[in-house]
Nucleic acid binder design. Structure first.
Lengths: 297, 297
DNA sequence: ATATTTCTTTGACCTTAGTCAAAGGAGTCG
DNA sequence: CGACTCCTTTGACTAAGGTCAAAGAAATAT
């Protein structure tokens, strides 16, 4: 991997300082207008009602601290705490009408602030800004996603495959039968590889490599969570799979795709895959691809 | 002015939330590694020594709070507090050797963090990110600058004109004589207008409009602080001046520029100014421009 | 020379943010 | 049924962040 240049680092830090000072400060200020920031944030996170347990995990808060904040918000009439019937140890927290009003007001103020900031710009400048923000956010998200080699039987691996199966089941006209998924032992150790991409601890994409025949690998189940598409994540998964293939001494990798997955086909072509005749007969496959790997990384 | 669309507002807020959560949090964390955030920030702001008074103004801190933080940093051997001879009420705060080492370490950590974030991106993606960050920052800066009509004799107006005079004195081969600046009464009230652009309270650009003859205005002293150039600020100043000219019932505005100010000439042309013969004989002028104004705003 | 302003220091005080541990009620598993 | 785990509540405590007002010293205005 190429080292990061000093210019990129300093540009990033310059932006960072500028942004947190100019905007971040403002942001905190409006949020905690007349309420402690912690409570304001909590109010914001509740949404349509969650358990304290859930909130505690999501915001990484101390149980005691959260309990007290919840009580304080309840005393202010902004939330309601209830006991769910299925597990009376838990507490559900949900917004009252007053809480929703308060939240709406918070949002209104934040919107007004943002709008006020943008008014001095001309419409083309606003468009340019919006585009630059989208690019920045996309790339920062991508940068924050890490790809890990996991055991094919690992919980995260199975969760990804289940999501993948459910996803394509709706996209393939004939549906998809789960028994066609790779078995854990096919993608573990010497036999192959399984990669999971994590964003903030949550699995968001996967890809599998298995042995097709000696010296030939097969790539399967390259999948990206709908919320993480269009970031370039599939390409990164593919790169990892190819690297693993080289490490497994495969000289060729093959794969097949379904007729409806046109974006996938375009991506494989763009990544150096050439279409070949069917190398295996398969219900779901309509296009077959192959790529020769060079030993050099 | 066009109203801001909801999409621009929500894109901005989405980015805002994402960025402050992802990056801002990290940022605070590294800064306050083993030191309270307030002190870490203070250390960062001292630079090459400033007075407590200056810091207090810049960071909007309570005098007592600041005094105590400064003492705490002094006790840790990171700063030195001295009394300036010219005003013994003040205290100067400056970094000791240990303070500079500490600051360098802080910076090193922050750089490493930024670099770590960028490593997963490919070089073209890094370039794309850096460019998007620069665009964002430029436009946010521009959005944060406000332009105000001020009295020609106001302190900020004179400060801008002094800076302008000093600036062009170095750029004109023959130097520049301050007596050629507009007099306050020429640009005040019915006679003309004077605009100052403020960025975070500091005057960063100016522009003057005076009466040349009945119905004809003259634009003079359009100047932008070197630190605020290439943002599109001069154009905004010019727009304000033209708006003021319409309000003064001028049907034409004229201006002259010096031969060396080629960027200025290009800007005037791009803004609809046509070159005309000399309308006044002037030591510094070599190009003369004119624009007819339509009554409609 | 006197009054007023400016700047820092100090004491007193408050809220927010957060941690830790004990305790108790409720589920779960063998 | 008993042991164990899970989840919340409560008490006790700490540090950080911040405000306010009084006081003292020095500079500036009148």
């Amino acid at each position: 991997m190429e080292p990061v240049t000093d210019e990129d680092v300093s540009a990033f830090r310059r932006f960072n300082r500028y942004f947190t000072r100019r905007i971040g400060a403002l942001d905190d200020h409006y949020l905690g207008q007349d309420r402690p920031l912690g409570e304001a944030r909590l109010l914001f996170e509740i949404g349509d009602g969650v358990s304290l347990r859930e909130l505690r995990g999501r915001l990484a808060l101390d149980a005691g601290y959260l309990s007290r904040m919840a009580k304080s918000l309840e005393a202010q009439g902004l939330v309601r705490l209830t006991v769910p019937p299925h597990d009376t140890r838990l507490r559900l927290i949900e917004l009252t009408r007053a809480g929703r009003v308060e939240l709406k007001e918070q949002n209104r103020r934040a919107d007004a602030l943002a709008a006020g900031l943008l008014t001095t710009l001309t419409p083309p400048q606003r468009t340019e800004l919006t585009r630059a923000l989208a690019t920045t956010q996309r790339l920062l998200r991508l940068a924050g996603i890490t790809i890990a080699l996991v055991d094919g039987a690992a919980e995260d691996a199975r969760a990804c495959l289940d999501a993948y199966a459910a996803d394509i089941d709706t996209r393939f006209p004939e549906g998809f039968d789960k028994t066609d998924l790779v078995r854990p032992e096919e993608v573990t150790g010497d036999a192959g590889a399984f990669f999971v991409a994590y964003e903030e601890g949550r699995p968001m994409a996967c890809g599998a490599l298995r042995t097709l025949e000696p010296g030939v690998g097969e790539i399967r189940h390259v999948w990206v969570h709908p919320a993480a598409r269009r970031l370039g994540l599939a390409r990164r998964i593919l790169t990892e799979l190819e690297r693993a293939a080289v490490a497994h001494d495969f000289t060729v990798v093959r794969l097949d795709t379904h007729a409806v997955l046109t974006e996938a086909q375009a991506m494989y072509r763009a990544c150096g895959y050439a279409e070949i005749p069917a190398y295996v007969d398969h219900v779901y496959a309509s296009h077959w691809f192959e790529k020769r790997l060079t030993g050099a990384r």
